[in-house]
Nucleic acid binder design. Structure first.
Length: 718
DNA sequence: CGACCTGCGAGATCG
DNA sequence: TCGCAGGTCG
């Protein structure tokens, strides 16, 4: 392969500079992923490096998946470690956590679990500080991301009045995690760091394996992540990092731009390459981006340029209120879809804060425009999914008391708080885990009523853990579903209950898909993969409008972008303690937002916005002023926008929706015994009809309860 | 035990 | 406004 024809001159240099430390400062849309992909391909093809000896760290699972695919397409090679820091660490710990005195079947706790633990610690020990949960969690995470123990961190925050509270809760929290044989997300990094620091032989094993280490999105790594990388490459020194200081938008979460700004201090012999040619955006969009980011001090200094034409003017609109703003955006989209050959998937509506997506969602769903929200509430954070996962976790990691208390009374078994408390007390007195306590209830000396109820749950728990290795994962999931009887746990007459059951169905479907891609996968492995997944990782090529926070579209591009809600206090988000550095980060977020656009870009704000139950009047964002567009802005006649939108919507969308398929659907054909087909679930038989709902036994996925009016079912026989 | 009532607070979120 | 946590009552 001739790399010089595939890459431009500035891209080619870092790709072929394979030894030692290399820093690539890659502007937005400058072909960063391309450089990384071809660099790895080059190592394999031209330098004869085995894929086995290559490690590439990405920011998201999705990015990892895409990069693997691209590398495979270029080289035909598979099997190298391309993953996030957290996945990397989880894998290392799965192999070697025993050396730290941990069980290798550890659970991985997310924020929700951490919250529950902190809440409980506060309740038991510091009831008067119950409202400090968030602050404390933030500090625990901050301490862990700079590898500090409670004592060390205590010294660091010695001026804070709540110093003792924070460090004491931190210490107790650590005890609690250890008891549960669990790691939180920060632990994955921290414990791996400690493992490497304390066990030279383990570190050396990985050093000798990963001769070439790559890190993408380097500007958003935190201290401990960089420490990990430094340890890994200490022996051979081949470190290749790619990033853009102007796109560092995770400072609030411990990302340290210093890692990129001071890279040369750590690696004095490093070569630094800049990628400044942008292939993504039109000239006008790029000019706007450059203008805005120029207001930040302390940059490494890049000036993006393009050979593209100026293209379409960037527009700015100030709308009267949030509803009019949404109308304006919908109108633009409709017009471009209808008259200019754009697809819905060409559009992204970007917001700074999630709460303002609502108006857009409501309008779009009422007119049947397809959309998808990225970010916001996560699928795997939903209560019903977490409940289900808790059963699986209990089966794999019996020490996981957190999961046990979560499900001990779900579905309801009459095991109330008092009963759980009694169980916990009895177990901690005897210094045994909840699970072991449940397995030897007769020794706990609880009241007969408690013992009887707990025995029921204990039998279930025992059964689930005994059977976990008896069958393939997808069958086991079905087994859990039946054995726990999730079906009767939700009220099918309640729309919320139905949604929850549907979500569980979706979860089960995703397990099936996972099993299809990873045959013979063990439950342990699956659970650890699952804990590290987020909604943003879904790859989906559907034709829909994307509504997302700017953070949610990092690395993505769209032909048309609307940046909405550009108001002081929202974007930039301002609080009483906002510093200059914070505003600079806001500006970088704005820069990321602008540079997502390829052809068309709109900036909008609403003069009045309904939030928190009242009207807010916000002034126009400083970023609009910095973009230089405000002079060109024309104030729209609100009623005019409203009128044209209503008209257009009625014409284009209303007919389809008033007599939509669901209303007139004849559901009398779905009788007991009828064979049906579902596009996602496959073929099945109706076993019970209850009004609009039917219980259907699917050949592959087992019994599901579906709403006959809504579910895309077709009859295929009697 | 669990259903219902009241008061409070409200940011972005990679894994 | 909405969602949650904590308190109260049947």
């Amino acid at each position: 392969m001739d790399y010089s024809t595939l890459l431009n001159e500035e891209q080619l240099k870092p790709v072929t500079d394979t030894e030692g430390a290399v820093l690539v400062l890659a502007g937005a849309g400058s072909g960063k992923t391309r450089v990384l992909t071809y660099r790895i391909a080059y190592l394999i093809e031209k330098c004869g490096v085995s894929p086995y000896n290559i490690l590439a760290i990405t920011f998201t699972n999705k990015a990892a998946g895409e990069m693997k695919e691209r590398i495979f397409n270029v080289t035909g090679q598979e099997g190298m470690w391309v993953m996030t820091f957290h996945s990397f660490c989880a894998r290392v710990l799965r192999n070697d956590a025993d050396k730290l005195g941990h069980n290798r079947n550890f659970s991985i706790y997310g924020e929700a679990e951490s919250d529950r633990i902190i809440t409980r610690i506060l309740k038991e020990n510091f009831p008067e500080d119950a409202d400090k949960k968030k602050t404390i969690r933030w500090h625990i995470s901050a301490a862990k991301s700079i590898a500090m123990t409670p004592e060390q961190y205590s010294a660091r925050i010695k001026d804070r009045p709540d110093r003792d509270l924070i460090t004491q809760v931190y210490a107790k929290y650590e005890e609690e995690l250890a008891k549960n044989n669990a790691f939180d997300f920060d632990d994955l990094l921290l414990k791996t760091f400690l493992l490497f620091a304390m066990h030279k032989d383990v570190l050396e094993k990985y050093q000798d394996r990963f001769l070439y280490v790559h890190v993408d999105e380097f500007q958003d790594t935190n201290k401990i992540q960089f420490l990990l990388v430094k340890m890994l490459v200490r022996k051979y020194g081949n470190i290749f990092v790619v990033g853009d200081d102007d796109q560092s938008i995770y400072g609030w979460r411990g990302a340290d731009v210093g890692n990129i700004l001071n890279f040369k201090k750590d690696y004095p012999d490093c070569r630094i390459y800049k990628l400044e040619r942008n292939y993504r955006s039109s000239g006008n969009i790029l000019k706007t981006a450059n203008k805005v980011i120029a207001n930040n001090a302390g940059r490494m200094g890049k000036q993006l340029w393009t050979e593209k034409d100026d293209g379409i003017e960037v527009s700015y609109r100030s709308l009267g209120d949030d509803k009019t703003e949404a109308d304006f955006v919908l109108e633009q989209i409709m017009n471009l879809v209808k008259n200019h050959g754009y697809r819905y998937s060409d559009f992204a509506i970007l917001v700074r804060i999630n709460s303002i997506t609502r108006t857009f969602e409501e309008k779009m769903s009422s007119y049947g425009m397809p959309y998808k929200v990225i970010g916001g509430f996560k699928f795997y954070e939903r209560k019903e999914i977490k409940d289900f996962i808790a059963y699986l976790r209990m089966a794999v990691n019996p020490a996981d008391g957190e999961s046990i208390t979560r499900i001990i009374n779900f579905p309801k078994r009459g095991i109330g708080e008092a009963c759980v408390e009694a169980l916990i007390r009895a177990c901690s007195m005897r210094n045994i885990s909840l699970y072991d306590g449940l397995m030897s209830l007769e020794n706990l000396e609880l009241s007969p009523a408690y013992t009887k109820k707990l025995a029921q749950f204990a039998a279930l728990a025992k059964d689930l853990s005994e059977h976990k290795d008896d069958m393939p994962l997808d069958e086991y999931i079905k087994y859990v579903m039946d054995r726990v009887d999730f079906y009767s746990a939700y009220d099918m007459d309640d729309p919320e209950g139905r949604t929850k059951l549907e979500n569980i169905d979706e979860f089960i479907t995703s397990v099936h898909e996972f099993c299809a891609d990873n045959p013979d996968v063990r439950l342990e492995e699956y659970l650890q993969t699952l804990s590290l997944l987020t909604d943003a990782d879904e790859t989906d090529e559907g034709n829909y409008i994307t509504i997302a926070t700017v953070h949610g579209v990092k690395g993505l591009e769209f032909r048309c972008v609307f940046i909405v809600g550009l108001e002081e206090g929202i974007f930039p988000s301002l609080r009483s303690d906002t510093t200059t550095a914070d505003v600079e980060e806001e500006r970088r977020i704005m820069y990321v937002a602008i540079t997502r656009a390829q052809e068309r870009l709109w900036l909008t704000n609403a003069g009045r916005r309904f939030r928190f139950g009242k009207w807010e009047n916000n002034s126009v964002s400083r970023f609009v002023k910095e973009s230089g567009l405000i002079a060109a802005a024309r104030r729209m006649d609100e009623r005019m926008v409203h009128h044209t939108v209503q008209q257009a919507l009625r014409r284009d969308f209303a007919p389809k929706f008033t007599q939509s398929a669901t209303a007139g659907k004849d559901i009398s054909v779905f009788k007991e015994g009828v064979k049906v087909r579902h596009p996602k679930f496959g073929d099945g038989v109706v076993t019970e009809v209850n009004g609009e709902n039917a219980r259907i036994a699917f050949e592959k996925l087992g019994v599901k309860v579906l709403n006959l009016r809504l579910a895309p079912l077709t009859v295929i026989g009697e």
